[in-house]
Computed example of a mutant assay.
Amino acid sequence: MTNHITTTWLGNMKFESTNPSGHNVIIDAAPEMGGESSGYRPKALMLSALAGCSGLDVASLMKKMKLLVDDFKIDIEANLTEEHPKHYDAVTMSFHFYGRELNEKKLQKAVDLSVEKYCGVMEMFRHFAKMTIETHFHHNETLK
């Protein structure tokens, strides 16, 4: 299977990128780089792709396992190298589950399956960054 996107310059530092889903993404640079900050920054978009990929896996597994979760979020902190080309060399992904009836064992299994087996973006990240995965369970709390 091949994915095809087209990224078109909109002037200055702004681009619009197609997506196989039919939804487009605006990419722009920070003001200090000559942009207007009116879209996603490319490296941050990679982190969103990582969280989205793994999040979709976990959400699918939660549905299949019939797990009760009120809220779910993924926080990512990534270290960007100082030297050019700047890249992520260490990434910490924190999975946060909120609810009154969290099955920690099964939720951890869902996270592990995504991280170890299903998430292709995670596999790509492993080639250039040290990955740290954390899972946090927030019983009787709401998403903040």
Rank of each mutant, 00 (worst) to 15 (best):
H4E: 14
T6Y: 06
T8S: 01
L10G: 03
L10F: 00
G11H: 00
N12R: 03
M13H: 02
K14A: 11
E16C: 09
N19K: 05
S21K: 08
S21L: 13
S21T: 12
H23L: 14
I27K: 02
A29D: 07
A29E: 10
E32T: 07
E32S: 13
M33Y: 10
E36I: 00
S37Q: 14
G39R: 03
Y40W: 12
R41Q: 03
L45F: 10
S48T: 12
A49H: 04
L50S: 06
C53V: 10
C53T: 04
C53M: 08
S54D: 05
G55E: 06
D57R: 09
L61H: 08
M62T: 14
L67W: 03
L67S: 13
V69Y: 08
F72I: 05
F72W: 11
I76M: 06
E77G: 09
E77M: 08
E77N: 14
A78F: 07
N79D: 15
N79V: 10
L80R: 04
L80D: 02
E83K: 15
E83F: 05
H84E: 15
K86S: 11
K86T: 04
H87D: 08
Y88R: 04
V91G: 00
S94E: 14
F95N: 09
F95Q: 08
H96F: 09
Y98G: 13
E101F: 07
L102E: 12
K106S: 12
L107E: 09
L107C: 13
Q108I: 02
K109N: 11
V111H: 07
E116T: 03
M124Q: 11
M124A: 13
M124N: 07
H127P: 02
H127G: 13
H127D: 08
F128M: 01
F128D: 00
K130Q: 12
M131T: 01
M131E: 02
I133S: 01
I133F: 02
I133V: 14
E134M: 01
H136A: 12
F137D: 08
